[in-house]
Design a protein around this nucleic acid. Structure first.
Lengths: 222, 222
DNA sequence: GATCACTTTACGGTTTCCCGTAAAAAACTT
DNA sequence: AAGTTTTTTACGGGAAACCGTAAAGTGATC
């Protein structure tokens, strides 16, 4: 089993449970950080001292408070950590359950497992740790695996997300067109953008732009 | 100390920690429900058996899954519980930190304490339980008390929330007017509604309706 | 009950959204 | 290379949002 594990989790109510779960797996060294910055520093320090961590278990969202932090999310933390220690194993333990976001965690960050906080997540987390230790990869906890399978024909792409983001910032069509042109993204004619937004409205069964943003906000796409 | 306490919390990672915290306060009977419906049934059953709960500690948001549930949120649960057992003490333990929503919990549901899940929430939860036991009321955990003080001049009322809710459902002005008339809420002239939405746009610095909904969604108002 | 302050509603003009159609451009086929 | 399909862009008309102003209603005060 892993002998040195770091947990990045802000909620104390969750971290105590995770620590307990790790103890049951007889991990000897279990460390915990409440802020991403702290977690990053611990990993760098351990690396310098030649006693690096084998595994990082991280949440995605961290509450903001009085403290100024460079790294504010699990994504940022993992990205930064992988730069200094590419061989570290990573498990994301988060409440997030939107397939779009989880997929991108595997693809862009190369995490080893994703466990969704839920009604039976502690055992799932334990088996995920076990399987990652045995060098398995791309592990998704039970509760989620079904939602990730049922994929829709119409795949939401990064382009659609940018449109939704710009819309949610209050931009009007012409402004979005201008923005995309400057960013070198195409299609960028206001008519095409209009059409694409229309597709999104059909797909999400939204009756207008306001409705569309409300729905996609709920889904965590923006 | 309370001798019979019910915890309504879906995440197992959190409930084990809360149970532990209660044990430290030497609560003898600690029960736990992962679904609002289960919690409600437990409370009703205990009441019938003449061994009622003294305290309910509830989360606000519960994940949805395959199971069909009547009660889907902590608010609904507390409202239902208070109808069958008005004297029960209630503490909300949630990640929510929007002053508007917390205020309404005290005012409309009459909860006894609110503890925000955070970096030091377990001790805060313990003292809250202690103080509720000593018949103190309207307790707000440390981390939040400051944010609730700094109040704005323009108070967002329930009326505004309904407008935003209807907007986010994709309703157009005339439809909103119609809806409000049927619900007996006034003002309900489309012009007044327009003006009110305009005030909200100024207040939230939104450039149009889409932007407004994006912002208020982020704030958790809708 | 007349005056004043404030709220609610009505109305009109401009802008943007919404939606269909069609032209232009690009990509693909043979 | 010519034809076909698909994607992108352009255009136009009607609906809704946007924004200012004016009228009608409401309530408090004296």
């Amino acid at each position: 089993m892993f002998n040195k594990v770091l947990i990045a989790e802000d909620l104390d109510s969750i971290s105590v449970a995770v620590i307990q779960a790790l103890e049951m797996l007889s991990v000897v060294e279990i460390h915990h950080a409440k802020y991403c910055d702290d977690a990053y520093l611990k990993i760098k320090k351990a690396l310098l001292d030649k006693v690096p961590y084998n595994l990082l278990i991280s949440d995605l969202s961290f509450k903001t408070d009085h403290r100024e932090n460079k790294l504010t999310s699990g994504e940022e933390l993992i990205e930064a950590v992988k730069k200094v220690q590419p061989d570290i194993k990573t498990i994301v333990f988060s409440i997030e359950d939107k397939s779009f976001r989880i997929k991108s965690l595997f693809n862009t960050l190369g995490i080893n497992a994703y466990v969704s906080k839920g009604r039976n997540s502690l055992p799932e987390l334990q088996t995920a740790i076990q399987r990652v230790y045995e060098n398995e990869d791309k592990i998704i906890s039970n509760e989620l695996s079904h939602t990730l399978r049922g994929k829709s024909i119409f795949e939401i792409e990064a382009y659609d997300i940018s449109l939704l983001k710009l819309l949610s910032k209050g931009y009007i069509l012409d402004e979005i067109a201008k923005e995309l042109k400057e960013a070198g993204i195409s299609p960028n004619g206001s008519s095409s953008i209009e059409k694409r937004i229309n597709k999104l409205k059909v797909y999400f069964k939204a009756s207008n732009n306001v409705h569309l943003i409300a729905i996609t906000k709920d889904l965590g796409l923006v």
